[in-house]
């Protein structure tokens, strides 16, 4: 997966975060909705997540290694799309999917929650 890792300080243990998945992804993970992944940044956490559970990759990320159009990701309750620079470009679907917040550092015990953007009635 083209989610290049940032440089890590040798010897420093990478924080472990808890990743929560929506129920729609239960068939993908065999019913598991809570996983752990490691990394010093969100980018490293995502890379570790799909390394541990490769079946998740095509469902969370598109061929450009950006979030799928309607996939939402929250880091400690904050939408990761709000973490980066507003000037960063949108993906080729003309929607969100930006990766500009992915270098946000994470700490031990952080949470990453994936959800789908369900709006309208």
């Amino acid at each position: 997966m083209d989610i290049p890792s940032t440089t890590r300080v040798a010897g420093r243990p990478r924080p472990t975060v808890t990743v929560f998945l929506p129920s729609l992804l239960e068939p993908v993970t065999g019913g598991v909705r809570e996983l752990t992944a490691c990394g010093g940044s969100l980018r490293e956490v995502f890379a570790d997540l799909v390394a541990r559970e490769p079946r998740l990759k095509p469902h969370l990320f598109n061929e450009a290694s950006e979030f799928r159009r309607h996939v939402l990701c929250f880091h400690n309750g904050t939408n990761t799309r709000w973490l980066g620079s507003p000037a960063a470009g949108e993906n080729d679907d003309g929607q969100g999917g930006r990766r500009d917040g992915w270098d946000t550092p994470v700490s031990e015990g952080d949470t990453v929650v994936f959800m789908q953007a369900v709006s309208g009635g």
Partner: peptide, 20 residues
């Protein structure tokens, strides 16, 4: 396939249990 999560292929030996 999902409008949100895209497509996938699943296999099953019996039509009961499925694995992507």
């Amino acid at each position: 396939a999902s409008e949100i999560y895209g497509p996938a292929i699943f296999l099953s030996p019996d039509g009961e249990s499925w694995e992507q």
